[in-house]
Design a protein around this nucleic acid. Sequence first.
DNA 1: GCGTGATCATGA
DNA 2: TCATGATCACGC
Length: 226
Amino acid sequence: MTISRQPAPNSESELFSRAQALAGFTLGELAELAGQIAPPDLRRDKGWVGQLLEWHLGATAGSQPVPDFANLGIELKTIPISHLGKPLETTFVCVAPLIGLQGVNWENSHIRHKLARVLWIPVEGEREIPLTERHVGSPLLWSPSADEEARLRQDWEELMELIVLGKVEQITARHGEVLQLRPKAANSRVQTDAYGADGHPIKTLPRGFYLKTQFTAELLKRHFML
DNA sequence: GCGTGATCATGA
DNA sequence: TCATGATCACGC
């Protein structure tokens, strides 16, 4: 027997209602409803939780570089949290462009569009809790506040400046207050094109932008305090 | 290899 | 204990 993915939501409120309806369920219950067998742990299935929630909410993008809910312009992010409600991991946003950067600015950047509207779904993430027993939390529809966007923009501009200057290999995860640049690849042998220090092309490890846990923690806290 | 979904595992 | 750098799976 196969069970097909839920239909795509037609509005933001419909999507949010559907996400609220998932709160309180365990991942085991949601897996069964989707006709899936939960893996024993996430070591070999790191994206399983995100993909399970995508199924339940009717996300359409797959692996395309477009929002999960393209018609609504909304990105879905599951976020693993501790029993105190704090994020256990940084949040991957998107791959960082390393070449072809003429004309790219914050306003037209891929990352700004990705973060313009995000549906956050907290999920219990402590490894002590068996995967099937972890609970889904209450969702949060978020857009960056003026202050949040300013901080994201500042980090992004500093990181992109280093990339354009051919200093990508000098960037570490310690750069940036809220946004960091880290490897995003199958393994450390993967190579892609980037600018070298002399302006000529080099091969380097693909990088991605990640939101630091302190940033997402504040965002979640603001929600729970309201 | 790229972009999607992310978490793992180890050194500091 | 915790963040960084590395890694896993999938479709194309």
